[in-house]
Protein backbone atom coordinates (compact mmCIF):
# COMPACT_ATOMS: atom_id res chain seq x y z
CA UNK A 1 0.00 0.00 0.00
CA UNK A 2 1.41 3.35 -0.94
CA UNK A 3 1.94 6.12 1.59
CA UNK A 4 -0.65 8.23 -0.13
CA UNK A 5 -3.23 5.48 0.09
CA UNK A 6 -2.52 4.98 3.77
CA UNK A 7 -2.94 8.67 4.37
CA UNK A 8 -6.15 8.48 2.42
CA UNK A 9 -7.68 5.81 4.63
CA UNK A 10 -6.35 7.47 7.76
CA UNK A 11 -8.30 10.62 6.99
CA UNK A 12 -11.30 8.43 6.39
CA UNK A 13 -11.09 7.06 9.92
CA UNK A 14 -10.46 10.44 11.52
CA UNK A 15 -13.28 12.10 9.67
CA UNK A 16 -15.92 9.54 10.50
CA UNK A 17 -17.89 11.88 12.73
CA UNK A 18 -17.75 14.56 10.08
CA UNK A 19 -18.80 12.00 7.50
CA UNK A 20 -21.78 10.86 9.53
CA UNK A 21 -22.80 14.47 9.93
CA UNK A 22 -22.31 15.07 6.23
CA UNK A 23 -24.54 12.13 5.39
CA UNK A 24 -27.15 13.24 7.87
CA UNK A 25 -27.17 16.57 6.18
CA UNK A 26 -27.27 15.09 2.72
CA UNK A 27 -30.25 13.00 3.74
CA UNK A 28 -32.71 15.87 4.01
CA UNK A 29 -35.66 13.74 5.03
CA UNK A 30 -33.90 12.34 8.07
CA UNK A 31 -32.66 15.77 8.96
CA UNK A 32 -36.19 17.17 8.80
CA UNK A 33 -37.34 14.39 11.14
CA UNK A 34 -34.53 15.09 13.58
CA UNK A 35 -35.31 18.82 13.56
CA UNK A 36 -38.99 18.18 14.29
CA UNK A 37 -38.29 15.81 17.19
CA UNK A 38 -35.64 18.16 18.57
CA UNK A 39 -38.10 21.05 18.42
CA UNK A 40 -40.76 19.06 20.25
CA UNK A 41 -38.19 18.24 22.90
CA UNK A 42 -37.14 21.86 23.30
CA UNK A 43 -40.79 22.85 23.57
CA UNK A 44 -41.33 20.21 26.26
CA UNK A 45 -38.38 21.39 28.30
CA UNK A 46 -39.08 25.10 27.90
CA UNK A 47 -42.87 24.89 28.18
CA UNK A 48 -43.04 26.87 31.46
CA UNK A 49 -40.93 29.62 29.91
CA UNK A 50 -42.57 29.97 26.50
CA UNK A 51 -46.19 29.19 27.34
CA UNK A 52 -48.11 32.49 27.78
CA UNK A 53 -50.63 30.95 30.22
CA UNK A 54 -50.50 28.20 32.85
CA UNK A 55 -51.69 24.73 31.73
CA UNK A 56 -54.26 24.07 34.41
CA UNK A 57 -55.69 27.50 35.26
CA UNK A 58 -58.54 28.59 33.02
CA UNK A 59 -59.90 32.02 32.42
CA UNK A 60 -63.71 31.85 32.89
CA UNK A 61 -64.00 35.15 31.08
CA UNK A 62 -62.53 33.71 27.88
CA UNK A 63 -64.37 30.50 27.08
CA UNK A 64 -64.52 28.85 23.62
CA UNK A 65 -62.73 31.72 21.89
CA UNK A 66 -61.44 31.18 18.35
CA UNK A 67 -57.73 31.68 17.60
CA UNK A 68 -56.69 35.29 18.15
CA UNK A 69 -53.60 37.29 18.98
CA UNK A 70 -54.19 36.78 22.71
CA UNK A 71 -54.91 33.06 22.27
CA UNK A 72 -53.14 31.90 19.09
CA UNK A 73 -54.87 28.47 19.19
CA UNK A 74 -58.04 29.72 20.90
CA UNK A 75 -59.49 28.56 24.23
CA UNK A 76 -61.68 25.66 25.30
CA UNK A 77 -64.89 25.36 27.32
CA UNK A 78 -63.10 25.90 30.66
CA UNK A 79 -61.13 28.87 29.39
CA UNK A 80 -57.81 26.98 29.08
CA UNK A 81 -55.40 28.46 26.55
CA UNK A 82 -55.00 25.73 23.92
CA UNK A 83 -51.60 27.00 22.74
CA UNK A 84 -50.09 26.78 26.24
CA UNK A 85 -51.60 23.37 26.84
CA UNK A 86 -50.33 21.99 23.53
CA UNK A 87 -46.82 23.05 24.60
CA UNK A 88 -47.14 21.61 28.09
CA UNK A 89 -48.60 18.37 26.76
CA UNK A 90 -45.39 17.66 24.87
CA UNK A 91 -43.82 16.88 28.26
CA UNK A 92 -46.24 14.08 29.13
CA UNK A 93 -46.45 12.68 25.64
CA UNK A 94 -42.70 12.53 25.14
CA UNK A 95 -42.25 10.94 28.57
CA UNK A 96 -44.75 8.28 27.62
CA UNK A 97 -43.18 7.70 24.20
CA UNK A 98 -39.60 7.52 25.41
CA UNK A 99 -40.47 5.57 28.56
CA UNK A 100 -42.59 2.97 26.79
CA UNK A 101 -40.08 2.53 23.99
CA UNK A 102 -37.13 2.24 26.39
CA UNK A 103 -38.85 -0.45 28.44
CA UNK A 104 -40.13 -2.37 25.43
CA UNK A 105 -36.74 -2.10 23.72
CA UNK A 106 -34.68 -3.37 26.64
CA UNK A 107 -37.02 -6.13 27.74
CA UNK A 108 -37.78 -7.17 24.16
CA UNK A 109 -34.09 -7.20 23.25
CA UNK A 110 -33.25 -9.29 26.31
CA UNK A 111 -35.94 -11.87 25.53
CA UNK A 112 -35.20 -11.87 21.82
CA UNK A 113 -31.46 -12.33 22.33
CA UNK A 114 -32.01 -15.18 24.78
CA UNK A 115 -34.51 -16.89 22.52
CA UNK A 116 -32.35 -16.56 19.43
CA UNK A 117 -29.02 -17.40 20.98
CA UNK A 118 -29.89 -20.08 23.53
CA UNK A 119 -32.64 -21.69 21.46
CA UNK A 120 -34.45 -24.86 22.53
CA UNK A 121 -36.69 -24.58 25.63
CA UNK A 122 -36.06 -20.91 26.52
CA UNK A 123 -36.80 -20.04 22.90
CA UNK A 124 -40.07 -21.98 22.94
CA UNK A 125 -41.19 -20.47 26.25
CA UNK A 126 -40.34 -16.89 25.37
CA UNK A 127 -41.80 -17.00 21.91
CA UNK A 128 -45.08 -18.63 23.01
CA UNK A 129 -45.55 -15.86 25.59
CA UNK A 130 -44.86 -13.31 22.85
CA UNK A 131 -47.45 -15.05 20.66
CA UNK A 132 -49.98 -14.75 23.48
CA UNK A 133 -49.26 -11.05 23.89
CA UNK A 134 -49.66 -10.37 20.19
CA UNK A 135 -52.82 -12.47 19.92
CA UNK A 136 -54.80 -9.56 21.39
CA UNK A 137 -55.44 -6.47 19.34
CA UNK A 138 -52.87 -3.96 20.60
CA UNK A 139 -55.31 -1.37 21.80
CA UNK A 140 -57.53 -3.87 23.57
CA UNK A 141 -54.55 -5.33 25.41
CA UNK A 142 -53.34 -1.89 26.49
CA UNK A 143 -56.87 -1.02 27.61
CA UNK A 144 -57.16 -4.21 29.62
CA UNK A 145 -53.82 -3.70 31.34
CA UNK A 146 -54.54 -0.10 32.32
CA UNK A 147 -58.04 -1.00 33.42
CA UNK A 148 -56.69 -3.82 35.58
CA UNK A 149 -53.82 -1.86 37.13
CA UNK A 150 -55.67 1.40 37.46
CA UNK A 151 -55.17 4.50 35.35
CA UNK A 152 -51.87 6.26 36.08
CA UNK A 153 -48.92 7.53 34.10
CA UNK A 154 -46.70 4.61 35.14
CA UNK A 155 -49.33 2.01 34.31
CA UNK A 156 -49.98 3.65 30.98
CA UNK A 157 -46.30 3.50 30.08
CA UNK A 158 -46.12 -0.09 31.24
CA UNK A 159 -49.17 -1.09 29.20
CA UNK A 160 -47.84 0.45 26.01
CA UNK A 161 -44.43 -1.14 26.59
CA UNK A 162 -46.04 -4.54 27.03
CA UNK A 163 -47.92 -4.20 23.78
CA UNK A 164 -44.71 -3.36 21.92
CA UNK A 165 -42.53 -5.95 23.59
CA UNK A 166 -43.17 -8.83 21.12
CA UNK A 167 -42.16 -6.69 18.16
CA UNK A 168 -38.68 -6.11 19.57
CA UNK A 169 -38.30 -9.68 20.79
CA UNK A 170 -39.21 -11.15 17.40
CA UNK A 171 -37.07 -8.70 15.48
CA UNK A 172 -33.96 -9.31 17.55
CA UNK A 173 -34.49 -13.05 17.66
CA UNK A 174 -34.60 -13.32 13.89
CA UNK A 175 -31.52 -11.10 13.53
CA UNK A 176 -29.59 -13.10 16.12
CA UNK A 177 -30.58 -16.33 14.39
CA UNK A 178 -29.10 -15.16 11.11
CA UNK A 179 -26.07 -13.30 12.49
CA UNK A 180 -24.97 -16.22 14.65
CA UNK A 181 -24.53 -18.30 11.51
CA UNK A 182 -22.18 -15.76 9.92
CA UNK A 183 -18.57 -16.65 9.43
CA UNK A 184 -17.13 -14.05 11.76
CA UNK A 185 -19.10 -15.55 14.62
CA UNK A 186 -17.56 -18.92 13.83
CA UNK A 187 -14.21 -17.14 13.64
CA UNK A 188 -14.87 -15.65 17.08
CA UNK A 189 -15.46 -19.14 18.45
CA UNK A 190 -12.30 -20.41 16.82
CA UNK A 191 -10.12 -17.89 18.65
CA UNK A 192 -11.62 -18.92 21.98
CA UNK A 193 -14.39 -16.43 22.80
CA UNK A 194 -16.67 -17.58 25.62
CA UNK A 195 -20.38 -17.83 24.83
CA UNK A 196 -21.51 -14.69 26.62
CA UNK A 197 -18.85 -12.63 24.89
CA UNK A 198 -19.81 -13.93 21.47
CA UNK A 199 -23.35 -12.75 22.12
CA UNK A 200 -22.45 -9.37 23.58
CA UNK A 201 -19.48 -8.38 21.42
CA UNK A 202 -19.95 -10.19 18.14
CA UNK A 203 -23.65 -10.83 17.66
CA UNK A 204 -25.60 -8.05 19.40
CA UNK A 205 -23.80 -5.03 17.91
CA UNK A 206 -24.46 -6.50 14.48
CA UNK A 207 -28.10 -7.30 15.18
CA UNK A 208 -29.47 -4.35 17.07
CA UNK A 209 -29.67 -1.64 14.38
CA UNK A 210 -33.15 -2.58 13.12
CA UNK A 211 -34.46 -2.21 16.67
CA UNK A 212 -33.43 1.42 16.72
CA UNK A 213 -35.21 1.99 13.46
CA UNK A 214 -38.25 0.20 14.83
CA UNK A 215 -38.08 2.37 17.97
CA UNK A 216 -38.58 5.59 16.08
CA UNK A 217 -41.72 4.16 14.54
CA UNK A 218 -42.89 2.77 17.88
CA UNK A 219 -42.33 6.10 19.62
CA UNK A 220 -44.85 7.73 17.35
CA UNK A 221 -47.18 4.83 17.79
CA UNK A 222 -46.85 5.03 21.60
CA UNK A 223 -48.05 8.64 21.54
CA UNK A 224 -51.01 7.60 19.44
CA UNK A 225 -51.91 4.77 21.81
CA UNK A 226 -51.50 7.00 24.86
CA UNK A 227 -53.72 9.63 23.27
CA UNK A 228 -56.26 6.95 22.41
CA UNK A 229 -56.31 5.56 25.95
CA UNK A 230 -56.58 9.01 27.45
CA UNK A 231 -59.35 9.80 25.01
CA UNK A 232 -61.48 6.97 26.35
CA UNK A 233 -60.71 7.96 29.91
CA UNK A 234 -57.97 5.46 30.70
CA UNK A 235 -54.47 6.73 31.29
CA UNK A 236 -54.09 10.47 31.72
CA UNK A 237 -57.04 12.12 33.42
CA UNK A 238 -58.96 15.22 32.43
CA UNK A 239 -57.89 18.01 32.74
CA UNK A 240 -54.14 17.19 32.68
CA UNK A 241 -52.34 18.57 29.66
CA UNK A 242 -51.97 15.66 27.26
CA UNK A 243 -52.83 15.73 23.56
CA UNK A 244 -55.28 12.83 23.76
CA UNK A 245 -57.03 14.31 26.79
CA UNK A 246 -57.32 17.63 25.02
CA UNK A 247 -58.94 16.02 22.00
CA UNK A 248 -61.28 14.19 24.34
CA UNK A 249 -62.27 17.48 25.95
CA UNK A 250 -62.97 19.14 22.62
CA UNK A 251 -64.76 16.33 20.85
CA UNK A 252 -68.22 17.57 21.72
CA UNK A 253 -67.52 20.95 20.18
CA UNK A 254 -66.53 19.80 16.72
CA UNK A 255 -70.14 19.69 15.58
CA UNK A 256 -70.85 23.14 16.93
CA UNK A 257 -67.94 24.58 14.94
CA UNK A 258 -65.26 25.05 17.63
CA UNK A 259 -62.72 23.03 15.62
CA UNK A 260 -59.60 24.55 17.20
CA UNK A 261 -59.99 22.69 20.49
CA UNK A 262 -59.32 19.35 18.79
CA UNK A 263 -57.41 20.50 15.74
CA UNK A 264 -54.24 21.82 17.40
CA UNK A 265 -53.51 18.88 19.73
CA UNK A 266 -54.30 16.56 16.80
CA UNK A 267 -51.84 18.42 14.61
CA UNK A 268 -49.23 18.20 17.39
CA UNK A 269 -49.65 14.42 17.47
CA UNK A 270 -49.40 14.16 13.69
CA UNK A 271 -46.31 16.34 13.45
CA UNK A 272 -44.49 14.52 16.27
CA UNK A 273 -45.23 11.09 14.81
CA UNK A 274 -44.11 12.28 11.41
CA UNK A 275 -40.84 13.49 12.94
CA UNK A 276 -40.12 10.12 14.50
CA UNK A 277 -41.00 8.25 11.32
CA UNK A 278 -38.78 10.43 9.15
CA UNK A 279 -35.84 9.73 11.46
CA UNK A 280 -36.54 6.02 11.21
CA UNK A 281 -36.35 6.10 7.42
CA UNK A 282 -32.78 7.31 7.33
CA UNK A 283 -31.50 5.73 10.53
CA UNK A 284 -30.86 2.35 8.96
CA UNK A 285 -28.24 3.89 6.68
CA UNK A 286 -26.55 5.85 9.41
CA UNK A 287 -26.19 2.85 11.70
CA UNK A 288 -24.48 0.67 9.10
CA UNK A 289 -20.70 0.98 9.52
CA UNK A 290 -20.16 -0.22 5.98
CA UNK A 291 -21.89 2.84 4.63
CA UNK A 292 -20.09 5.37 6.75
Amino acid sequence: MSVAAVADVATQAGGRVRLAWGRLRSNRVTLAGAVIVALVMVVAILAPVIAPYPALVGNPAAVLQPPSLAHPFGTDQTGFDIFSRVLYAARLDLTIAVGAVAIAFSAGALFGALAGYVGRLPDELIMRVMDMLSAFPDFVLAMGVVAALGPSLINLIFAIALVNLPIYARLLRSRVLSVRELQYVTAARAIGNPRWRILLVHILPNSIAPLFVQSTLQAGYAILTAAGLSFIGLGIKVPDAEWGVMINMGIRYIVSGQWWITFFPGAAIAITIMGFNLIGDGLQDLLDPRRR
Binding site: Q183, Y184, A190, V201, H202
Partner: peptide
Protein backbone atom coordinates in the same frame (compact mmCIF):
# COMPACT_ATOMS: atom_id res chain seq x y z
CA UNK B 1 -4.53 -24.69 16.18
CA UNK B 2 -6.14 -21.88 14.27
CA UNK B 3 -8.26 -21.40 11.18
CA UNK B 4 -8.42 -18.85 8.37
CA UNK B 5 -11.68 -18.70 6.46
CA UNK B 6 -12.51 -18.34 2.81
CA UNK B 7 -14.26 -15.05 2.58
CA UNK B 8 -12.30 -12.32 4.32
CA UNK B 9 -15.24 -9.93 4.19
CA UNK B 10 -17.44 -12.35 6.10
CA UNK B 11 -14.97 -13.64 8.64
CA UNK B 12 -14.33 -10.28 10.29
CA UNK B 13 -16.74 -8.48 12.62
CA UNK B 14 -17.87 -5.41 10.67
CA UNK B 15 -18.26 -3.32 13.81
CA UNK B 16 -14.86 -3.92 15.37
Amino acid sequence: AQIVFQDPSESLNPRM
